[in-house]
Amino acid sequence: MAYLINIPTFTDARGNLTVLDEAIPFQIKRLFYIYGVDNSARGGHRHHQTIQAAICIQGSCTIINDDGEHTEHIELDTPRKCLILETKDWHVMTNFSPDAILLVLASTAFDAADYIFDPYPHEQQSS
């Protein structure tokens, strides 16, 4: 299941300095950021090999994560908070604030064959 980590941040009268060097639990092979998002959802996939770290460095967004057993809504609303998404984590990014910038660090270079777009099947509970 995806999990949150707090990124070391140093604060003084001049502002904040957040350091990723030792905080990310994998070697970074790719990074990208998402911004200017309208009311659309982004993502809607998981990976065969890639682990990701998501940090909303400005504004806020919600990541809906499903690991096949549990679904969780995680609010990213501070650049000190980082969500680690493992390969089993099918995720959708939504509810972007108008000023949101979501930075994503990945453990692999881009490979279209690494993506799994089908969500987990969940049995309907009878009432």
Rank of each mutant, 00 (worst) to 15 (best):
I28Y: 15
T9H: 04
K88E: 14
Y3I: 01
E86A: 12
L102G: 13
I55C: 07
D12G: 05
L103F: 14
A54W: 11
T108S: 09
S127Y: 09
M1T: 08
A13E: 15
R80C: 03
E22N: 14
L76A: 04
P8Q: 07
I55Q: 05
M93E: 10
K29H: 15
Q124D: 04
I34Q: 12
C61R: 00
F96N: 00
A109W: 05
A106F: 02
D118Q: 13
T18S: 08
N6Q: 12
N6I: 11
T62R: 03
T87C: 09
D21R: 14
Q58N: 15
G36T: 02
D12F: 09
F26P: 03
D118N: 13
P8N: 05
L105Q: 14
I84Y: 01
V92L: 08
A2V: 00
V92C: 07
P121F: 10
T50A: 12
H73G: 03
T71I: 14
Q124L: 12
D89R: 10
D114V: 02
W90F: 14
P8Y: 06
A23Q: 01
P121E: 10
D89N: 12
L105C: 14
T62G: 01
W90C: 08
I5V: 07
G15I: 07
C82D: 01
N16R: 08
F32I: 07
H91C: 08
L31T: 15
E75V: 07
V104L: 03
H73R: 09
A41G: 04
E69C: 12
P79H: 05
N95T: 05
L83I: 02
N6A: 11
I63Q: 01
N6C: 08
P25T: 12
L20C: 12
H48L: 09
Y115F: 08
D77C: 03
V37Y: 02
R30A: 06
E69I: 10
K29M: 14
E72W: 02
S60A: 12
N16Q: 09
D89A: 13
I5Q: 01
P121L: 08
